[in-house]
Simulated scan of single mutants.
Amino acid sequence: MDIRKLRYFVAVAEELSFSRAARRLSISQPPLSTQIKELESELGVRLLERSPREVKLTGPGEVFLSRARAILEQIDAAAVSTRRAADGGFATIRIGVVASGLFTATPLLTAHAERIFPRAEISLFEMGSAEQLSAVLREQIDIGLVHAPVDVPNLNSRLLTREPYVIATSSARARGRPAPAGLHAFADEPFIGFSREVSPALYDNLIVACRQAGFSPKLMHTARHVFTMLQLVREDRGVALVPASVAQAGIAGIALFALTDRINEVRISAVWRSHPSRLVQALVADLAPALALPDAGPTQ
């Protein structure tokens, strides 16, 4: 399929006008119409509904627009990376990150990448663990930072960081509570948890930890992002089991309680394809884990 036809289609789909798209592309309208018809013929579907008054996307046209944009973005990114390499630079390093590793694994890996490739451009993509595993396999990112354990065919992993959990509560809900505390002390509280779809390991850790403490959590809300959870905590919607390093965010109106329970830690691993590019090989060759993280200092 001709890349030019993709660019022509995207222009028409975004402008919803052949005349405006032609001006945008600096071509005349007849060849533009011809290229779109040829594209529809190749695909065997109608992408656009045309009338004298308007142009509209069909259902298949909307699907194709999304995919065409993604393809063109990758082509443009490849061209930029190639030109940078020709100028003596390096291609972009694409790193997937989980929000719960913002203060731990993410700075560890990005600092390492900057030392190995000082002229590289580092692009961070915030995704859940499951999304990252899929993105690494599809080569949409070069390396991911995901919640351990990782046991996926065709992927290698290395544990980078581990840290304890703490309980986050609103300042109002924290008044009068002793610290540190056992998890059972929060048995009657509504809980806010990580989305199981996005962070299955963290969701499961909450359920298992509470059951080990002798109760089942009253899970009132789930969220994709740890900072969404903390905002709900701040609004006194419930309590949350979160990584201790969130203390570094310094969010007002939240109290953090160290726990006396022996529960699973928050573990984050780097993950990459079993047959990586030379860039990734160099990146992970001497990637040393930082398992002894400084205490995040949970406080009441």
Rank of each mutant, 00 (worst) to 15 (best):
G89S: 11
L133V: 05
P164T: 09
Q212R: 10
L47D: 08
L108M: 11
R115K: 07
L183S: 02
L259T: 07
T34G: 15
A213L: 04
V226C: 10
R119H: 13
A292L: 12
L279F: 05
T260N: 08
E14K: 03
A209I: 09
L39M: 08
G214S: 09
G59L: 15
F227T: 15
Q74P: 10
R173L: 03
V150W: 03
E139F: 05
L202S: 11
I207K: 04
L137C: 02
A292C: 12
A255R: 07
Q212F: 01
A13I: 02
I95N: 03
R67T: 12
I251D: 06
R115A: 14
G96V: 08
A79H: 14
L160I: 02
V12Y: 04
R278I: 14
T58R: 06
R177S: 00
L137K: 01
I36Q: 06
R84F: 07
V98S: 05
L145M: 01
F103C: 13
A105M: 03
A120K: 02
E114R: 14
A290C: 11
L6I: 08
A270F: 11
L160Q: 03
I263D: 00
R262F: 10
S51L: 04
L47C: 05
Q140E: 15
P217V: 08
P30A: 01
A223D: 07
R24L: 14
K56R: 12
L232M: 13
G89T: 08
F64P: 12
P31G: 05
A213C: 07
R53I: 06
D204H: 03
S134K: 11
P149C: 02
R175I: 02
I95F: 02
S274A: 15
R196P: 15
P52Y: 00
A68K: 05
F18M: 12
T92D: 13
I254S: 00
A209M: 02
V208Y: 05
L259C: 00
A255L: 03
R262W: 10
R23G: 13
P276W: 01
S170C: 07
S171D: 08
G193Q: 06
L259V: 09
A213F: 03
P164M: 05
I3C: 09
A77V: 02
A255G: 05
I27F: 06
Q74T: 07
P178G: 02
G89Y: 02
D286I: 12
K5A: 15
G44V: 00
F64Y: 11
A68P: 08
F186L: 01
M127F: 08
R20W: 10
V280K: 03
E114V: 03
S269G: 07
F18V: 01
D76S: 10
T169D: 00
G101F: 01
A223W: 02
E49F: 08
L159S: 09
R177M: 00
I3V: 15
A296C: 06
T228I: 08
E235Q: 13
A70S: 12
P60V: 03
V239L: 04
A105N: 06
R175K: 07
E131F: 04
F257Y: 00
S26H: 13
L109K: 04
L291T: 06
M1Q: 09
A285H: 09
S28A: 07
